Amino acid sequence: MPLATTRRSGLVDQVIEQMRSAIAGGEWKVGERIPTEPELVAALGVGRNTVREAVRALSHAGLLEVRQGDGTFVRATSEFSGAVRRLAGTELRDVLQVRRILEVEGARMAAEHRTDADLTELTELLARRDRSMVAKDYEAGVDQDAAFHIAVVRCSHNALLAELYSGLTEIVRASVASTVDATPRNADIDHGGLLTAIRERDADRAAAEAGGFLDELIAGIEAD
């Protein structure tokens, strides 16, 4: 990632902002290791202490995770998302319950407010997701499944709801991956009914479809 050489004032804040931008913009992806300390020093034209302080600040904010002997990895794309990940912990049921609260109303509003362009995007995302799952390319399928759910909420055209849900991006993907890994049959979950309801502007059905498969996953966890 090309990083601009910083000015000599406010070096730590500048480095933090550049690193935050690299994370938020997807240049450094969640789960990936960021450049090493010497690489960052050379790219930014600052000292090691400045880089270390910036990394420390972003780690405290939840965006980065320092693994001794292994490097520094991207943990979340924003402070909000990092906080959510810390709160969510390893309780998959909690994550699914929060997803249900947001996704049911998101789907209801998507059916009411979606545009033709929204519908095209949802159709393409779901088609790619289904192809990946049929091919047992679960890693790609999980990414596309999460992207589909995020797009559904975005199609609600409620900016606040979409922003709140976008903060859950990492744990949405993690929860999808967890359910697929734990029970491969969950890869066969059909979201076609949800897409049809949104296409037909059937808000009640869209809400029921969005909540139905999550209810099944939650029930399965509670039964274990």
Results as ranks from 00 to 15, higher is better:
residue 103 E to C: 01
residue 73 F to R: 04
residue 176 V to E: 12
residue 79 E to A: 11
residue 165 Y to N: 06
residue 96 L to G: 05
residue 184 P to R: 01
residue 82 G to R: 07
residue 179 T to P: 00
residue 162 A to H: 04
residue 182 A to G: 15
residue 160 L to Y: 13
residue 167 G to M: 02
residue 50 T to L: 02
residue 118 D to V: 09
residue 161 L to P: 03
residue 159 A to P: 00
residue 182 A to T: 09
residue 128 R to E: 14
residue 181 D to F: 01
residue 154 R to M: 05
residue 181 D to T: 13
residue 115 T to S: 15
residue 107 A to L: 07
residue 70 D to L: 12
residue 75 R to T: 01
residue 149 H to D: 09
residue 41 V to I: 15
residue 104 V to W: 00
residue 62 G to H: 09
residue 76 A to K: 08
residue 45 G to T: 09
residue 118 D to R: 09
residue 173 R to L: 09
residue 61 A to I: 00
residue 147 A to R: 13
residue 78 S to C: 05
residue 43 A to W: 01
residue 88 A to C: 01
residue 159 A to G: 04
residue 127 A to S: 15
residue 72 T to G: 03
residue 122 L to M: 08
residue 158 N to H: 13
residue 65 E to P: 00
residue 148 F to Y: 15
residue 43 A to E: 13
residue 139 E to W: 02
residue 84 V to P: 00
residue 60 H to Q: 14
residue 162 A to N: 04
residue 68 Q to S: 13
residue 95 V to Q: 07
residue 94 D to S: 15
residue 70 D to F: 10
residue 87 L to I: 10
residue 89 G to H: 03
residue 120 T to K: 11
residue 86 R to S: 11
residue 50 T to N: 12
residue 133 M to V: 07
residue 89 G to A: 02
residue 170 E to P: 03
residue 161 L to W: 04
residue 150 I to F: 12
residue 106 G to P: 05
residue 134 V to H: 12
residue 42 A to T: 14
residue 154 R to V: 03
residue 127 A to L: 11
residue 124 E to G: 02
residue 88 A to D: 06
residue 65 E to F: 01
residue 99 R to H: 10
residue 102 L to Y: 11
residue 50 T to S: 14
residue 55 V to K: 11
residue 50 T to A: 15
residue 92 L to G: 04
residue 69 G to C: 02
residue 184 P to I: 03
residue 55 V to S: 03
residue 72 T to F: 02
residue 118 D to L: 10
residue 111 A to L: 06
residue 121 E to M: 05
